[in-house]
Design a binder for these strands. Structure first.
Lengths: 246, 246
DNA sequence: CGGCATGTTGACCATATTCAATTGAAGTGG
DNA sequence: CCACTTCAATTGAATATGGTCAACATGCCG
């Protein structure tokens, strides 16, 4: 399922990410670097961990897209999170013996598994890093909250527009070009809609001149229009750690 | 808006809660007790903190029910969380300068506000408590995930049944009797439905003999039936901290 | 070229919303 | 103690939004 990649990941992703907010000591840097040593490759459309499985590891996502999904007894699927490079998979499962969700590679993925225990050690040795992991989790939760609001209170068109803007902003924050490597069924499972309705709704956005799409390649023509339509508010993606010792 | 209550809260809620999982040192106990010193009273239907407000405080909820809500530009409301005694309000907002949601007292509430800074101090001085706060946040997120799945993928009847079972289980865990001090509009705003449809759906559950309700007093007649109907799985409420140093 | 995945489209249907009228319960003041 | 107000809940009728089912198109890859 996973393949060990030969060279260890000397180019850390977490360190520069955290250093946007503060300056890290050598000890802090080495604690972070330890999380990224065991780089593994997971091909697209494979599972990193399964739902219900005994979960002892987290993953630091180095490249590619992943998601967390949850299956209902009747086979329906809900996508809970979509993860981009730099995110940590499994923070929310820390307190659970068995995972509530499945982690799934949407594209070819490079990820570094590390045991839960490692995070506990960080809490002991580096309280400033603890702040930052707390922030990472808070940020994940902000996205989740916005998804609840989106699914609970917006129409299909608004939902889809909101989702597109969210991904655009999150990709921008990482200097990544806008590009969605997921099919319409997956979008539907993220937004609580059917793939058929996603197809229709994409057409509708396209007819309104807000986007174009062909052959799975989706482009945003009118970002302001999408923001207006969806009622998107940017704040939930902007973590400002004024409260830490940073 | 809030009223200081005379006697300081000598009877801590957090300490016994955390001691279910581990034994706390004297220092750890006094750090926790510090969070519960300033007991204030908030009447039902008042706001603890408003959306968009500069947020510098968290709240330890000592008694009563509270919720977190988010308003859309068009005035629609989404209830994000319902909080029961012993929970901490605002963990998720730690990383944000301005609150994304409003905290609202559903009943008369006793709560202890404390500055964010206090949590940072705990991270520094008591890594074992850090674990436990991390768990608290993870548990909150589990409920949120289940709500996403519920709203995204279940019918109104299933959603409502699931919600009732969830509240029943959460109240049980605190040895509280089942009783819902919230109106149908609030339930609707939690489940992404209108109050009208909640009324109809309650009637339907009642006709099926699963519940009774009159004058706002709702009783669960057939818990197993509700669990069956809703596809409820208990695991997400059961935090088992096997990974900590406890 | 053939096979499979994904996406598209139409017709029909189901679920939940909207709007509006009505009932009911609780609280207020005369 | 009884009008009067208010707010929540209920009910019906009409509507809308999104789902289901099925057929078909398209692109991709061996």
């Amino acid at each position: 399922m996973d393949t060990r990649v030969q060279e260890p990941g000397n180019n850390s992703y977490l360190i520069p990410q955290f250093e946007k907010m503060t300056t890290l000591s050598e000890q802090e840097q080495s604690l972070l670097a330890a999380l990224e040593q065991d780089v593994r490759h997971y091909p697209a459309d494979t599972t990193l961990t399964a739902e219900g499985e005994y979960s002892e590891r987290l993953f630091m996502l180095k490249s590619g897209w992943a998601c967390a999904t949850r299956f209902l007894v009747d086979g329906q699927r809900q996508v809970l999170d979509i993860f981009l490079p730099g995110q940590i998979l499994g923070l929310r499962e820390m307190g659970l013996r068995h995972s509530l969700s499945e982690f799934y590679a949407l594209t070819d993925v490079q990820a570094c598994p590390f045991p839960k225990q490692r995070l506990t050690e960080i809490f002991e040795q580096a309280p400033r890093l603890t702040d930052l992991f707390f922030l990472a989790m808070a940020r994940e939760q902000s996205i989740l909250i916005e998804r609840v609001t989106n699914i609970g209170r917006r129409t299909a068109t608004e939902r889809l527009a909101h989702f597109l803007v969210e991904m655009k902003v999150r990709l921008n924050l990482r200097d990544m070009a806008f590009h969605l490597p997921i099919n319409q069924t997956m979008i539907g499972d993220t937004l609580g809609l059917t793939s058929v309705h996603i197809s229709r709704t994409l057409k509708q956005l396209s007819d309104q001149g807000l986007i174009t799409y062909q052959n799975g390649d989706l482009k945003l023509l009118d970002l302001d229009g999408l923001i207006e339509l969806s009622g998107f508010e940017r704040a939930y993606l902007e973590i400002t750690p004024d409260w830490t010792r940073l």
